[in-house]
Write a protein that binds this DNA or RNA. Sequence first.
RNA 1: GCCUGGGUAGCUCAGUCGGUAGAGCAACGCACUCGUAAUGCGUAGGUCGUGAGUUCGAUUCUCAUCCCAGGCUCCA
Length: 658
Amino acid sequence: MITVQLPDGSERSLPAGATALDLAGTIGRGLAKASVAAVVNGTATDLTAALNDGDHVSIVTDNTDDGRHVLRHSTAHVLAQAVTRLFPGTKFSVGPAIEHGFYYDFDLPDGRTLSDDDLRAIEAEMKAIVSADQPFIRSEMSPDEALQLFADQPYKCEIINRVRAASGDSLDAAEVGRGDVISAYRNSDAFVDMCVGPHVPSTGRLGYFALQRVSGAHWRGDEGARMLQRVYGTAWESKSALDEHLTRLEQAAARDHRRLAIDLDLLSFPSEIGGGLAVWHPKGAIVRRIMEDYSRLRHERGGYQFVYTPHLTKGTLFETSGHLDYYADGMYPPMEMDNGTYYMKPMNCPMHCLIYASRQRSYRELPLRLFELGTVYRYERAGALHGLMRIRGFTQDDSHIFCTEEQLADEVASLLDFVLSVLRAFGFDDFTFNLSTKDPNKYVGTDDIWERATEALREALERHGLEYGIKEGDAAFYGPKIDIDVRDAIGRSWQLSTIQADFNNPQRFDLEYVGSDNNRHRPIMLHRALFGSVERFFGVLLEHYAGAFPTWLAPLQVRVLPVSSAHEEYAAKVVEQLRAAGARVDSVGADDGLGRRIRAAKLEKVPYVLVVGDDDVAAATVGVNPRGGEVERNVTVDAFIKRLTAEIDESTRRALNA
RNA sequence: GCCUGGGUAGCUCAGUCGGUAGAGCAACGCACUCGUAAUGCGUAGGUCGUGAGUUCGAUUCUCAUCCCAGGCUCCA
């Protein structure tokens, strides 16, 4: 007999050789059925592994994150087996579990690629493997034995060799673990895969999965390496969990900003103009204008000085800044002109540097904050474009702050306040912060200044009591930065704002100020954007609100609907009153039924629909049908105007003081 | 840039095994004048992304190209 300890501290005695699955069975049939793996003495283990006396054991069930991870990873093995069955000679590389699912990368014989039809066939083959209830049988071996076992799997051999040479990465580790002992899981005589595990006891435990898409993926994520066929899938513990997930995906698709931009007539991407270049329609332009006006107002109050700079510049400017060396690929190609080579600007900072450098600066002017809604052009690669989120022409709410090193921490601290206040104004309140530090292989400036600037950013974060992550080596070459991600209404995270220190440009543009000591000093430059790009921020907002902009931002705030044409004159009067009060309002005559017109207004997500009929004409009232609220009759026009302006003022006021 | 799909009416899509295309919604017209999410009837609307090739004939097949979607890579 052996005795094992459970997570609650209790002990169980089991016959020698018993497994975690046996243990789960003694605790309860339900647990045994839901179990997919175990954690033994802190290590994830197969349910079928024999337990030892004194082990600390907890059972991993299929409705936990860890349990789903096991399900997904095991399903990836089934996928690999199905593909090798259908396409003999397939070489497979890696197939990890990922958030919500899994993928597996394949190199099919003769460079064959997979189509969507293939996916359906593979899925059917996978179902057959699940029905066959094949066991997952673990074995362990030395690297040499593994090289022999996987002799016809070059990708596996490469992983084994790399790990043995101690240069493996985390993806490799998921395959082979420590490297001195390599484990493999066999499902059948014909299929064995190298893997750390753990796995479910048999394929019959799986089945609630769906293959989603096929795509190319470079081996080891290296663009120069061979392109493999990657199959993505999702897997869950039950049909209902799978269905819920698929439903969530549909709901997310329904609030896709590209869909909403078309439905709500906000903007479009005419192919005549070219990929990644948007035109803003009147309704989208209203929202954008309010966003920009708001941004200008906040910057004006925040002590920023507004500047304008051109969209074109001689290439020499970007030679000075160094961007041509680093980012020429990401810039629009040069235009040869009679007095030099010109480029569209991919950023505003060098031009702001020139404004700084246009005359001698005193320490008394610092911090000097230059602000511009600056439109820039970047040649994003065709495959990288994504609606407003990744776009080739966009407008940054861009500011460059020139300050002394001593001012850096204070300036960053007040910037954090500013950023959060602006983001809150637009309805975001869940933020995460990341501090990116020096990439030892790619940086300018002395170690000393990096150290002090990084410390200043850290101090600013800590002064706010903010929790933050560290991204080692993720800084731009010119200085450390703080990135701010926001979480939207459906839980997705977006990186919007950024605050970056820059030691490069001040040096390259030879920026100076005269200090109180009458000597010349070099300022530090801060780049910062709050929206990031106006376009992208608009896209995130659109998805955040699912198109239902709050009243202060809504393109149309009120629509007045006369019950019949007899009430159109009164409706026009109401419109006039509302317009005089500053509301964006229109009216639709009674050519169509009232229900139809209300439906149309609801689909346009107008915040307020006002219905006016006989009663209202008689009493100077309106019927108020608010978006997402209850209908209210007999509200006087004055009362509604008061309510509307109070709501708009309130959100604007809150926005200004947040 | 690479892999896999796709581009047909304003939108969502069907269709043509090669013989110049159809639905729903939207638009327009007429009737209806209606109290809170779809009134009825009718009309119009497309060189089937663009260019070339094969063919008696191409929206359909081939090639090129542009654009879109999902990935990979990239993102100052």
